[in-house]
Amino acid sequence: MSMTAAVGDAHADPHHIGLVVEHPGPAPKRIVTAYGFWVFLLSDIVMFSCFFAAYAVLVSQTAGGPKGSEIFEQRNVAIETVCLLLSSFTCGMASIAADVRNRFWFYLGMAVTCVLGLIFLAIEFREFADLVARGYGPSRSAFLTAFFSLVGCHGLHVSAGVLWLLTMMAQVFAKGFRADVLRRMMCFALFWHALDIIWVGVFSVVYLLGGGS
C-alpha cells in the first residue's frame, strides 16, 4: 500500500465545488521563520495596546500633579521621531545590503541605525531623568504611571533592539551571510520597523494629543 500511489478518486473534491487548488506543501524556511516572527510582532502589539488603553483610562488622573501639556517638550519628541524614522530607513538599507551580501554597506547601515537608536534612547533617558528629578516620577500620579510605562516599554524594546542589532553585526562578522543569519536579519528588520510604527502611536497619542492645551 504505497501512500504515493496515483489513483484517480472521488475523494479529492467531496463537496463538488469544482476546481480544488492543491496546497503545495510546507513553505520554505525563510517564509516560515518570518511568518512566525510576524505573529510574535502582532502579539507584541496587542501587549502595547494594553498600555495604550491604560494610558487612555488614566490620562486624566493627575492627582494634583502635572498635566501632559506642562511636562512634554515638543522639540525633543520631534528629534526623537526623526531619529527613529531615519533609523528605519537605514535599517532598510542594511537589509538590502544583506540580501546582496555587501558587507560594507551592511555594517554602515547597521552602525548608523545603532547610533540613531542610541540617540533616541539618550533623549528619552534625559527626559525621564529630568522628570524624576523634578519630582514627577511614575509614583507621582496615575497619569505619570501610565505615561512612564507606555513610553518606557517602547524604550525597553528599542534597547533590546540595539542589543540584537549589535549581536547581528557580530554574527555577520563571524559567520558571514549564512542562510540562518539572513533569516535573523529579516526578523530584526521587521522588529525595528514595527517599533517605529508603535512610536507613531506613542507620539501621536501621548505627546501630541496629550500635550495639546
Partner: peptide, 13 residues
C-alpha cells in the same frame, strides 16, 4: 516600583 495602576491612591483604578 510604586506605580499607581491599580492602587487606591493617586488616581489608580
Amino acid at each position: 516600583l510604586g506605580f499607581h495602576f491599580f492602587t487606591n491612591e493617586a488616581g489608580g483604578n
